[in-house]
Design a protein around this nucleic acid. Sequence first.
RNA 1: GCUGAUGUAGCUCAGCUGGUAGAGCAGCGCACUCGUAAUGCGCAGGUCGUCGGUUCGAGUCCGACCAUCAGCUCCA
Length: 672
Amino acid sequence: MNITLTLPDGSQKQFEAGVTGRQVAESIGAGLARAALGIKVDGELRDLDRPIAADAQVAIVTAGRDAPDADALYLLRHSCAHVMAEAIQRLYPGTKLAYGPPVENGFYYDIDCPSAITEEDFPRIEAEMERIIGEDRPFTRYEMSRAEAERKLAGDEYKLDNVARADGDVMSFYATGEPGRDWEDLCRGPHVPSTGRIGAFKLLSVAGAYWRGDASRQQLQRVYGTAFPDKKQLKAHLAALEEARKRDHRVLGRQLGLFHIDEAVGQGLVLWKPKGAVVRQELQNFISEELRRQGYHQVFTPHIGKLGLYRTSGHFPYYRESQYPPIIEHDELARLADEGATCAELSNRMAAGTVDGYLLKPMNCPHHIRIFASEHRSYRDLPIRLAEFGTVYRWEQSGEIGGMTRVRGFTQDDAHIFCTEDQVTAELLGCLSLVRTVFQTLGMHDYRVRVGLRDPDSGKYVGAPENWDKAEAACRAAARSLGVAFSEEPGEAAFYGPKIDFVVKDVIGREWQLGTVQVDYNLPERFALEYIGADNSAHRPVMIHRAPFGSMERFVGVLIEHFAGAFPPWLAPVQAAVLAITDAQLDYAREVLEQLKEAGLRAEIDTSSEKIGKKIRAAELAKIPFMFVLGAKEAESRSVALRRHGKGDEGVLGLAEAVALLKAKVTERALA
RNA sequence: GCUGAUGUAGCUCAGCUGGUAGAGCAGCGCACUCGUAAUGCGCAGGUCGUCGGUUCGAGUCCGACCAUCAGCUCCA
C-alpha cells in the first residue's frame, strides 16, 4: 500500500506504508539524510527510524543553519539527558532515575542518588558522557504493554509512577544501543538517531527538587545541563548567559548605587538609595499623572490595622503563615504574662479573636474599603477609584527572597475601584489601557498576559460560583480587547477572584508577575459594602483591584535589567555629566551646571584633576545619558561638545540648545 | 521552608597540605592641566559573616547560626 507524504514546500511524494523518516530524507538527498535528527509527522516530533503508516504532512528536522532549530534542540537535549543519566548511573551505582525532560534552555534529570553530587563531580560525569557520545550508539526504541512494563520495572518506584501516570496502553523504552545489552530508560521519546549526534553539551548546576513537585515528598537531586548541535552554539549560549549576568539588577543596583539590602535591617527589606529613589519617584510621578487623567483619587493609609479588619477580609485566618506575626499592645501583653499564657495559647486566642492586636498590612484593600464605607455612597458617585502607593509586608519564605524582585516589604501602585456590575467591563478596559500606556512608554514589549481562573478542583476560593462565572467572563472579554495573545490558566486566580496578570522575564529567564488586574465580588460581600441605586434601595458594589506596576521594588528591579542600567533621560538618576577638559574650564562648567539645574535637570560636575578620557569613562560607566564636554573652544563660544551614553561624540552645539534638547527628551519621556 | 554551593578591604578576587593577611579598582594626598572609555607617585583601609569547638597556634579543620547564590516548594 502506498501513502502520500507532503513536504514543507508543498510537494508530495509517494512511499510505501511503513517508510521511515530516514528513508524519506534519503529520497530527498544524501546531505539531508546525514543532517537529519528527527522528523515531524503532522506536527508531531518523532524518531527518524519510526515507520510512518499513513498520509501525512512531514518535515525533516535538522540542526538548523543559523539559529538552532527548536525541534532539533528538543531531540538533542532529551537525548543528552539520557546520556547523562547513563553516565551518572555508571559512576554512582545505586542511583535511581525519576524524571528527565528537556526544558527551555537545556535539560535536567531528577535522580535519587546515594551520594551527593556537586559541581566538582561534573568533570567526571562529563568525561563519561563524552565516552558514550564517542561510541555513537543508536537510540533504539521498543514497546511493550503496560502490564509488561510494570513487571519489568518492578521495584523502581519512580519509573512505576511514570508508567501509572502515562497515557495509553503501550509503553516505550529507549536503549542507548542494543536493547537488553545496553543502558535503557522508560521514555516516551523521541530521540536523535544516535549518541554521536549530540554535538556539544555542558552540565550547569545541581539543586534539590521534590519528587512530582510536592514539598511533602522526598527530595531528589536535579542535575541541569544544556546541549547544542555544535560547540560554537554552546559557546555562544554560555557567553550570552555571562552577558545576562552583567545586567542582573542586583549587580547593577550596587554598581549604580540604586539600592541596598542590609543584613542589619533584615532579609528582603529594600533600602532605596538616593539614585534609586529618583527612579522610583519619577515612575510614581508618571503613574500619578495617568491616574489623575483617569479619574482616580489618591489616598494615604497607615502601615498597620487591627487584626479584626483582616479577620473580616479573610487575610488573617487564611494567610497567617505568610504575614509578620501580629503586634500586641503593652497592656494586653502584660495581662497575658500575668496569666502565664504560653505562645501557643496566645496564638490560639488570636485565631479565636479573644486577643486583639495589629497587623502590618499584607494588602491595602481593607483600608481602602473602610474609606469607601466611611460615607453613604450613591450610584451617581460610582465608580469610585482610590489609589495609593501603599506599602505592604508579607512573610515570604527565606529561600525565595532575593534582590528587589522578591522581598518582604514592598510598595504597590495600588488602587481599588468600587463600581456597579454594569461598569465592571469598562473599568477593566480602563485598567488595561493604563497598563498598556505604562509598558509602551517604557518600551517593554516582551511580556505575556495571563488570565488566572479558579481551579475547579480546589476549595481555596471564596464567593458564589455564579459571581465567579461573571467575573471570569469579564476578565476574558477584557483580555481579548487588549489585542495581545493571552493564556487562560486555571488555578492562577486570587482566592477572592479571577485576574489578568502581566508577566515578564528577568535576565536569567525567571518569570515575574508585574501588573495585575483582579475582579472581586467577595470583599464587598465580607465588608457588606453598599451604595444606593437609582431605585432608592441598597446594592452591593463590585471591586476591582489593580496595580499596573505590581510593586515598585519588583518593577524597578525588572526595569534595571530591561534598560541594562542605562535609563532613558527622564528616569536617569543623573541626566547630565558636566566634564571640563582642564581646570581652566571649571568656571564655565559650573555655569553650565547651574543652567542645567535651572532647567530642572539632574546634573553632576566632575571636578577631579583627571584627563578627559577618565572623566568620560566614569560617566559612561555610571550610564549617564548626556555628557557635556567643555574645552577652551566651548568656553570661548559658550557651547558644549555633546556626548551621549553608548553613542559617543555628537558634535558641538550651543549651551541653550543642548540644555533644551535634554529638557525635551525628559519632558517627552523619550526612550533615547 | 528544603537541597547544594558560597561568605577575606567599599567592589572584584588571591591566600598550597593550620604558623596572627595580599593585589587590582574605588577612596584620600601630591604632582600633572591633558579634546571623547583608565596619567604617575604615595597614603590609608580587614574583629577573614557570627558564635562556639579542636589545637601550643585557625582565614585555613569541626559544629551551630546568619546572609548570599542556584534550583525546588510557595507567592492573598
